[in-house]
Design a protein around this nucleic acid. Structure first.
Lengths: 199, 199
DNA sequence: CGGGCAATCTTGTCAGTGTCAAGTTGTGCG
DNA sequence: CGCACAACTTGACACTGACAAGATTGCCCG
């Protein structure tokens, strides 16, 4: 594997207390940094431990696994998404917020939609996902039937696909040229208008 | 990490020739299997070598790196995508083919759009990507201006976002419920009709 | 035909990693 | 006060990617 910015795995400084105090959050924050910068594959538990100044096995006590850590991130992400989309009544707004979420929490977003990295049956994950899913469903049902062609299910797939595709391509730097220096949220607003307009 | 289905790293059977004959393709094929099943993070060069019945360092000669292997896959993928989309004149058809490509070559698709796994400046990759990009651009310019709201650039982003989002959500099993047992390509056809219709 | 050379593959090694087991240290609650 | 449990450490093992150096082979050119 590729080395992190390794130091000789320093033992803890004599001054620092034995208990970290908030290791869980420290590990999570460091993990999000790494993932946002270099993707989930660059994540190393030992590296995170080094950054937090604890021993290499400390993270395992809070998240059991590498998978456990990523699952926790995904669950947190779905919670944040549900909060971001919130109680919105306009579908276009929901889409804009979806895109905003992806840009504000790129690490969460990436992990949330990479199922092979997650413990699929984790309870926190499934409930958080259900919550977010319900929020999105609510936004779909808010658009008047005559503007979405009658089929709510299809309208939902369309809206989700458009927002998700735009967000994904954005994060993977595939839209850098076409959107240029415009605000991506405004660009997406135009896309959404193309999808739902009076027939 | 997690162990593969490890055997004691057997030395080559006395009968088998020293030269494999087509190691490059064998490694590629095995890699695609693994990625399609468990994602790129499950990829192990040593495991691929075992599957091909060669020594652990043999793959490095064909693709230098783990990154090199993934880059080769991505480049092949963009070539295949360009060929799949081909010389199509209808944008909706192009989208359908995009979705078809993602389902036929899920491993390629996944790797193609995970830039942190790739050597961004690789020549084969960049030329193949340019080729595919041009094919998609051609499909966009084929749709009559009155149906796409005048702005070709925006129409391109919309079409790509819709197709890419649908394909991505499909592969990550997020649309299993809503599309049910219908043919995803037909579902996407309906989505595409929502996007481009006479105002 | 044969000699050598480059491509292909092997062996050995090193640092880094995830995970497990067992021991230490601190904390809060009875 | 003391004791059980949580938080953390230490140590070990099997695995990994990468590199260097050697073995084997096909093949091109004389």
């Amino acid at each position: 594997m590729s080395r992190a910015q390794s130091q000789p795995e320093k033992t803890r400084a004599p001054g620092r207390p034995y208990h970290h105090g908030d290791l869980r959050r420290a590990i999570l924050a460091a993990a999000l940094d790494v993932i946002a910068a270099d993707g989930p594959s660059a994540l190393s538990l030992r590296d995170l431990a080094r950054r937090a100044g604890v021993s290499h096995a400390a993270p395992a006590h809070h998240f059991k696994d590498r998978t456990g850590l990523l699952t926790a991130i995904a669950a947190e992400g779905f919670g944040l998404l549900a909060a971001t989309v919130g109680e919105v009544t306009d579908l276009k707004d929901a889409g804009v917020r979806y895109v905003r979420f992806a840009r504000e929490y790129p690490a969460h977003f990436q992990v949330m939609f990479t199922p092979e990295l997650l413990r699929a049956d984790d309870l926190e994950l499934t409930t958080a996902r259900a919550l977010a899913s319900e929020a999105l469903r609510g936004a779909v049902s808010a658009v008047p039937p005559d503007r979405r062609g009658g089929d709510a299910r299809l309208a939902g797939i369309a809206a989700w696909s458009l927002a998700h595709g735009f967000a994904t391509l954005l994060l993977s730097h595939n839209l850098d040229d076409p959107v240029g220096d415009q605000d991506p949220e405004n660009v997406f607003r135009d896309l959404a208008s193309m999808l739902f307009r009076s027939p």
